[in-house]
Amino acid sequence: MPDLTRVTLTPEHGRAILHAVEGTEARAAVALMFAAGLHGREVVALRLPADYDREAGVLRVRGETPRTIRLAAVCRTALDAVLRIPLSPWGPWRGSVTTRSGTLVRALHRAGLAGDIHAPRHLALRLAWEAHADPLRIAHYFGVDGALPPAGEVCDHGIPAALDQALR
């Protein structure tokens, strides 16, 4: 039986939620969920600044499906803002997946939406699909079902540009 309580977000919802997030670190976490399609656990596993190559605009994603992805400009802007401030060991960026999930849920409610922690990733996947990205490339970029890109490949495939266009 399908889960009928899930919300399908639109790009307009995504923009509203990104604007509703308060705090530099929280905004970066939510931007990575929406505009890079990361799971909450992947956001929590990031090590900044080590996993972010500012010059190349790429992020090394850790976890079950490790990969290197090119980031949409909205993510790069959010991460650059985080790197300009001292990281607090108690701030939302260092929080658990529960803390970050709570940040996303609060942003959804502030934007007048109901949803769940998976809604941002679902929106990102749908936007990549609607941009006619190759299904295997989508799997590589988002780490779907353990699909690993070729070693050393930076996943791009036009997906960051499509996400940026929809969410700016």
Rank of each mutant, 00 (worst) to 15 (best):
R100T: 03
P150E: 08
W129E: 13
M33V: 10
L163W: 00
A73S: 14
R76Y: 03
H132S: 15
V154R: 01
S101D: 13
I138P: 02
L59R: 00
A128D: 11
G95R: 04
L46C: 13
A29N: 06
P149Q: 04
T103R: 12
A119Y: 06
A81S: 10
R126Y: 07
A31M: 03
G115W: 12
A35G: 12
L163K: 00
Q165V: 06
V97M: 07
L83N: 02
C75D: 01
L83A: 03
L59H: 01
T103S: 13
I159T: 03
T68G: 08
A73C: 08
I159E: 01
R62A: 13
G37V: 08
V82N: 00
F142Q: 01
A35N: 03
P160Y: 03
A72Q: 07
R47D: 02
L113D: 09
T65W: 03
M33Q: 15
F34Q: 02
D164L: 03
T24D: 13
H157G: 00
H140N: 08
R67V: 05
R121T: 08
A35P: 01
D156N: 12
E42H: 04
D53V: 05
W93N: 00
R67H: 06
A133M: 11
I159N: 01
Y141H: 08
L83F: 04
R121Q: 09
R27Q: 14
L113C: 13
E64R: 15
L79A: 04
G23T: 11
E153P: 02
A162C: 07
A119E: 05
D116N: 14
A128H: 10
A56I: 08
R137G: 05
V58D: 02
A131C: 10
A50W: 04
L87I: 14
A114Y: 12
W129M: 09
R41F: 13
T65I: 07
D53I: 05
L136H: 11
R126N: 10
L59V: 04
R47N: 05
E153I: 14
E130H: 06
V97Q: 10
T65C: 11
H132K: 15
L163I: 04
A131M: 10
T103P: 06
G152T: 12
I117A: 13
A147S: 07
